[in-house]
Amino acid sequence: MNAPAYNFAYLDEQTKRMIRRAILKAIAIPGYQVPFASREMPMPYGWGTGGVQVTASILGPDDVLKVIDQGSDDTTNAVSIRKFFAKTAGVRTTTRTGEASIIQTRHRIPETPLTEDQILVFQVPIPEPLRFLEPRETETRRMHALADYGLMHVKLYEDIARHGHIATTYAYPVKVDGRYVMDPSPTPKFDNPKMDDFAALQLFGAGREKRIYAIPPHTNVVSLDFEDHPFEPSRTPKSCALCGADDTYLDEVVTDDKGGRLFVCSDSDYCEERRGAEQAK
């Protein structure tokens, strides 16, 4: 049996071309989900195959790659994806946000502001923000075509009527450049304001659902809300037990079964840098 030989960054050139064309169209139509012929990857659907395909299609030998999951470089799936690219593309990897040229992420936007020279690639499970309101693709596509987003506003308003709050806390829908309503992927809504006028290019890949979309740098991104219920990003009102930051998104750690809790930065690199700077003083 012959051992299969794989191309640079795993994907064959024809697949990369197809994905590259989809990325260019996605950039030209900010927030619009471009269908693409997502390939079966050697990792399960739902585990970042969309992000991996996007990264594989843009990655070059000079890139430095960072992969995070839940904000951390050391979570198992982040480790797995980073190893995949180190192996198939031989690229340099890093855990430092500032050193990376491409950052692939699941569920977070780094706390450290990104620069013009960086690209943020999101892994997306369900790219269609209207999907849970209308399961039929034919219908949601029509709504996007007509910019008919009444259904989304009705849903958010029903939340307020029932709970006094909009009950969406992650994957909170945004409107991109005044046109397309878009799912930012399941990032906490704490991260939503970062997307507006972001310096780096943001690319979104949904492998199982076969969609790619994008937000060009410095694009207007607004979280949906109402005048009497303005959008508010939320975080646990505590400080990080490790670095003391009181303005970052926090993970909750259960320390015992008697109600013991402590909170630490979800962005592990940001937290380490802060602690390093503290020690240096």
Binding site: G71, P125, T169, Y170, P188, S234, T236, Y249, E252
Partner: peptide, 19 residues
């Protein structure tokens, strides 16, 4: 893939819901 991806960490989202 998608059913089993629920095994992956979701604590960032879960924290958002907790808040």
């Amino acid at each position: 893939g998608f059913v089993e991806h629920l095994k992956l960490p979701h604590y960032v989202d879960f924290q958002s819901e907790l808040v």
